[in-house]
Write a protein that binds this DNA or RNA. Structure first.
Lengths: 141, 141
DNA sequence: AAGATACTTGACTATTTTAGTCAGGTTTAT
DNA sequence: ATAAACCTGACTAAAATAGTCAAGTATCTT
């Protein structure tokens, strides 16, 4: 069970962006250098973040990205959603209401995995970008 | 972020085993049929469970596996440990005490991933096989 | 107007992980 | 003896991941 780089990078990049997001937009190049993430990969990620209106882009020289909402209003859930980082614990599809894997009843551990999924999603639901920025406010880079 | 089949199967199989574990050992063939898990794959999984002393094997005809501990004493943590299902949220290795990715400080989101890891592990630490068996005691198969 | 910077998009690909399969055993109850 | 069931290690196909690459477009600065 592991977090993918895409989700991790998205959060890292947004924290970085939030910290340097004063007046001017922050370029992906800077984030790439500071966080050690491939520029091309960042572009993919920010394309998705933009579509979900988490960031706004500013084109041209001195361009870059700015946050589209207050840090308090950006939950981890939103970020992961945007980049398709999903929490998957079960194989059985939810559509088939009758049971799992073609059987008539739920698989023995179905409730467990549902619980686990909720447990993890709760965590993501409660954390906001603001929390993360605060958490780092005393550190040096 | 997803749970692998190995971990899921291990838990499913052990719940199955726990329910049918009266006097006689339960054969993998039966578990395989009931749970729809490949026999060969189950053998790999049970080999690991045996090494970690979660189950005991009985060879020969009428053989199979029995639990080596009380259901109350088997935590999800133990099961996942045995089959190498790990919760990984960070890339940065823990050994390098100074920081992440060769830098001098922790990466901006390091604490977050640590928290997340703990959050998930807590869940696994608290659930026992007993809980799962009880949860299913009224269901039909 | 030119040039540089930086966003934009889509296609492509190497690597790794996962989820098994397969083959050839060994042990033991009947 | 033989069949059921455990045991082990090597192998492999498919999927997912983590990028790279190429060819743009927009806009600021000079």
């Amino acid at each position: 069970m592991k977090l993918t780089s895409k989700g991790r990078y998205a959060v890292m990049a947004l924290v970085d962006l939030a910290r340097f997001n004063n007046i001017n937009p922050v370029s992906l190049r800077d984030i790439s250098l500071r966080q050690g993430i491939s520029l091309d990969y960042l572009e993919q990620i920010f394309s998705k973040l933009r579509k979900k209106e988490i960031v706004q882009s500013v084109r041209g020289t001195q361009g870059g990205y700015i946050l589209n909402k207050k840090t308090k209003e950006i939950k981890l859930t939103n970020i992961f959603d945007a980049v398709d980082e999903k929490v998957k614990t079960v194989q059985c599809k939810k559509e088939s209401k009758k049971g799992c894997n073609g059987k008539l009843t739920k698989c023995l551990t179905h409730n467990l995995w549902d619980e686990l999924e909720n447990h993890i999603n709760n965590f993501f639901e409660q954390k906001t970008l603001e929390d993360l920025v605060k958490d780092n406010s005393e550190k040096r880079i």
